[in-house]
Design a protein around this nucleic acid. Structure first.
Lengths: 206, 206
DNA sequence: GGATAAGAGGAACTACCACTCCGATTCTAC
DNA sequence: GTAGAATCGGAGTGGTAGTTCCTCTTATCC
């Protein structure tokens, strides 16, 4: 009945997880990332477990629900995306930064079904984990957007939500309609043209 | 054993359906249109039957599968859409016609989940019924597009599939991201700007 | 090496849903 | 009014998928 290594009773884990447990957790995450990335939340959980080479019981030991596993995978992806934004926002070209950011988002999202679904669900029933990553993403995009609007090179009535909608849309559309990367690029190009502030067209003042 | 009203044995229905049968068919279609329009194919069939005030057995007497019922509903919607395109394509303004067409599509699709799903599935597992209606829609949009491209007022590299992708996407995006009609209109406006041929901007030659 | 608790695994449970079956009901023709 | 076919209705079936439970296994610590 006595705790061998008395600690705070509310939170701290008693001891580090066993080696096999850590290994399995990684395997599950990897399998889930691949499965969700391809087919989204529609993947049966049993299949993820099988791909990871563990039983479902083991999977549920590590992640309490399917949604929790999904959130873990997507959280990583969105986090990576937010980080990648740093690179494209570096230069002086405010308009180019926005366009590059949109293309980056589109390319990532079109390749990962789970990302697409997560962004679609943004605002409804997201776990804190994903919400955090999304907030970081929003701050990043919003910064680029404000700078470009202030410079007068992007329409002033455009918000992060609009950009998200356009990107989700482009990806969903391109995915359903087929045509691969080529179509994505064309659609992205159309959207970017549409985002230019009036008078800053391709042949306008550079 | 003898047929009272001998007719062709291969096809023609022996007699007109009973009055209650016709009534139920209409009720089912109406309930399905409402349910599918709101929640898409995800609606349980039992719920449609309940809303229609009939048993599931009755529903299945009239429509052999859920998909058949869905196709019946969507076929009507797409047909109406194709017809409505006639109105906007009437005038002389080729560019305006394309833009009006896109707005029309977007507004309809954003309000009807089943339409959105049907367009997303366009090309995969559509019933002949829906495929026909879609083909008519495609002809209509394509005509507008060609005319506008020929007149040099819309980018030359844009296809029906692109427009469909953009519209599906805009609707999916706007729906998920929230913001209602206002956002849809803004996104449509961005897309239309992006579709203009270079040099035909708002302040370019009218 | 042995004690022990953490962890593994998968059968079983539960919920949901499309679809079927067949006795009960109701319309139609005469 | 009556016969009988057409139609109705909803309990039941089969299958899928998320989650739980409990027994067996194994890593860790002494």
């Amino acid at each position: 009945m006595v705790h061998k290594q008395g600690q705070g009773e509310l939170d701290g884990p008693r001891r580090p997880p066993r080696a096999d447990a850590r290994r399995n957790r990684e395997r599950i995450l990897a399998a889930a990332a691949e499965a969700f990335g391809t087919r989204g939340l529609a993947v049966p959980i049993d299949l993820v477990a099988e791909r990871a080479g563990v039983g479902v019981g083991t999977l549920y030991r590590h992640f309490p629900t399917k949604e929790a596993l999904f959130a873990a995978v997507v959280g990583q992806r969105v986090g990576a995306l937010a980080a990648a934004l740093g690179a494209v926002s570096a230069g002086d070209d405010a308009q180019g930064a926005v366009f590059a950011c949109i293309e980056l988002l589109a390319v990532e999202v079109v390749g990962k079904q789970d990302l697409l679904e997560a962004l679609e669900a943004a605002g409804v029933d997201v776990t804190p984990e994903v919400a955090d990553a999304l907030a970081r993403l929003e701050r990043g995009v919003d910064g680029l957007l404000r700078r470009a609007v202030a410079a007068g090179v992007v329409r002033a009535d455009v918000s992060f939500q609009d950009v998200l909608g356009l990107v989700i849309g482009t990806c969903r559309g391109a995915r359903q309609v087929g045509g691969g990367d080529e179509r994505v690029r064309r659609l992205v190009s159309i959207i970017c043209e549409g985002l230019r502030a009036p008078g800053t067209g391709p042949e306008g003042p550079g």
